[in-house]
Design a protein around this nucleic acid. Sequence first.
DNA 1: CGTATATTTGATATACATCAAAACGCGTGG
DNA 2: CCACGCGTTTTGATGTATATCAAATATACG
Lengths: 269, 269
Amino acid sequence: MSNTIAAPWAAPISPRAPSAPTASAPYCPTRGHREGHSIAEILGSLSAAVSPQRRLVRAGDFIHQTGQHFEHLYILNSGFFKIVTLSPDGREQVVGLKLRGDWLGFDGIAQGAYACDAVAMDTGEVWAIRYESLLVACIGNRRLLAVLHEAMSRQISHQRDSLMSVCTLPADARVAEFLRTLAESLATSGQRADEISLRMTRAEIGNYLGLTLETVSRALSRLAKHKVIGFAPTGRRDLHIPNLDALSAFAQSCMVPTRKLQPIVVKSD
Amino acid sequence: MSNTIAAPWAAPISPRAPSAPTASAPYCPTRGHREGHSIAEILGSLSAAVSPQRRLVRAGDFIHQTGQHFEHLYILNSGFFKIVTLSPDGREQVVGLKLRGDWLGFDGIAQGAYACDAVAMDTGEVWAIRYESLLVACIGNRRLLAVLHEAMSRQISHQRDSLMSVCTLPADARVAEFLRTLAESLATSGQRADEISLRMTRAEIGNYLGLTLETVSRALSRLAKHKVIGFAPTGRRDLHIPNLDALSAFAQSCMVPTRKLQPIVVKSD
DNA sequence: CGTATATTTGATATACATCAAAACGCGTGG
DNA sequence: CCACGCGTTTTGATGTATATCAAATATACG
C-alpha cells in the first residue's frame, strides 16, 4: 500500500527551461496569475538560479515522508499531489492538495524533518532544491527570496481558508467550495477548469473536508441534480463545471438559515 | 465593538533588550524551547538587527486588519492575541491564537495586504518590523533569515495540526487537545502551564474549534468531572491543569470506537 | 470475464446544534 | 453596601445534519 521512493533522484532530466504542463489544455492566461510572478516565471527563475534536480513520479510515489531528514524543498512542475499527516495515535488526515507551481516541504524547515507525507496522485515532475543552496542563491537574488516568501505566505493564507471552510460550511457547501477552489487552482496552474478530473476517491475527498465518503457522494449527487456540476459519461471522477459562480451560489444557498424567515427589514430612507 | 487602532506606533519604548513576559510566572526553562533558538534569543537578535517599533496594546486593539496595506511583520513580546478571518459572505472564524514569540502578518507578504485581523485579547507588547528592512537585514545575516523561515515553517505545521484536530477529533477530545496545546504554548513562551487563564469566551473557543459555545461548556464540565482540569474558585475562565498527559489520555479515551468491542487480538509472540 | 475496489443510495443512529431558561459574575450607579 | 442590568456560563430538552450500517450497482484491473 505504501510505495517507497521508487528511484533515487535522477540527474536533471534536461537542462531546458520549464516544461509545459503535461495535460494538454488550452493555456489560457486569464489575467495574471499573481500580482507578482506567474508560475512560468517562477519556475524559470528557479531553474536558472539553482538548477533543481528534476524527477518524474507516478501515482503513489512519495516525494517526502514524515520524519525524513529535511534537506530539500520541492516545486511541482506538473502532476497532482496530496499532503497527508499521520497523528501518533493513528489518525490520518489529508491536509493539502498541490499542483504545478506549488511548493512542498516548508514544514521541514523548523524541525529539520518533514512533518507529513507528500504523495503523487498521478504522474508528474517534481523539482528538488537543496534548501541550503536556495538560501545561498536568495542572498544574492532578492527576487528569488521574494518568490520563496510569497510561496510560504500563500500557503499560510490558503491553509486558513481551509480551516474556515471546515469550521463554518455545511457539507454540501464544503464540497462545492472544494470544487471551486480546485478548479481555480487548476486554472492558475495552466489547466482547464471546466472539465476537471478528481484524482482522488470519495474517501480521500471526505477526509480532506472532514466528511465521510457517503456524505461526499451525496453532496456530489445533489450538485449534479442542481446542474452546477455534471458527471462525465465516463467515470464518476471526471466532472464538468459549467460555471464557477454557480458553484459559489449553490454553496451560498446551502447556508441560508433555512427557516425562521425573519421579516426582511427594509430600512426606510 | 470594534476598536480601531488606538494610537499610532510609538517610538521605541526603550532601547533595552527583550523585556520579560508581563505575567509574573516561574520562568522554567524545561528543556530548550526549540532545537534552534529560544524565544529570548530570537527577540534579542531581532531587537539588535532591526530595532523594531514597540507598541503597547490593550484588549480589543487591532494589530492589523483585513485589507490593510502590508508593510510590517509583527512579533509578540507579551500578551495574548487572536487571528480572525472574515469571509465575503460574513462568516467569521478564529483561525489562530498567538502569544509571546509568535509572528503576525505572514499572510500579507504574498498579497500585499493582510488577509485577516489580529486582535489583542489582553494587554501586551508588540514589535513591528518593516518587512523590507527585515529582508535587508536578513541578506547580511543568515541566522536572522533562518529565524524568519523557521517561524513561517512552524506556523504552517501548526495550522496543519489545527486542521487535523478539527477534522478528526470529537468535541471533547478537541477541547482537551486545545487546552493541552495552549498550555504547552504558554510553557514555551515562559509562562506557567498548570494554572492558565483562558482569555476567550466559550463562544470564541467554540468558533476556533468548530463547535458551539454550549458544546465547549459541556466539554469543559466533563473534563472537570473527570478531574483532568479544575476550575479556579474565582471565575470559570481560570483553569487548573494538574497533568498534561492526563489531558491527552482523556482525549484518547474519547476516541475509542464506541465499543462494538472487537476482540482484542493479542499477537502471539 | 471475474474479482476487488469504488460509488451510490437507503435506513437508522448519534453527536452535536439549536432552543430555552436559570444561575452566575461583574460593572455601574444609587 | 446593595440593587440593578447585561453579558457569560451552565444545564436541560429537543431537533437535525451528518455518521454509521448495509446492500445494490458501477468501475477498474488482472
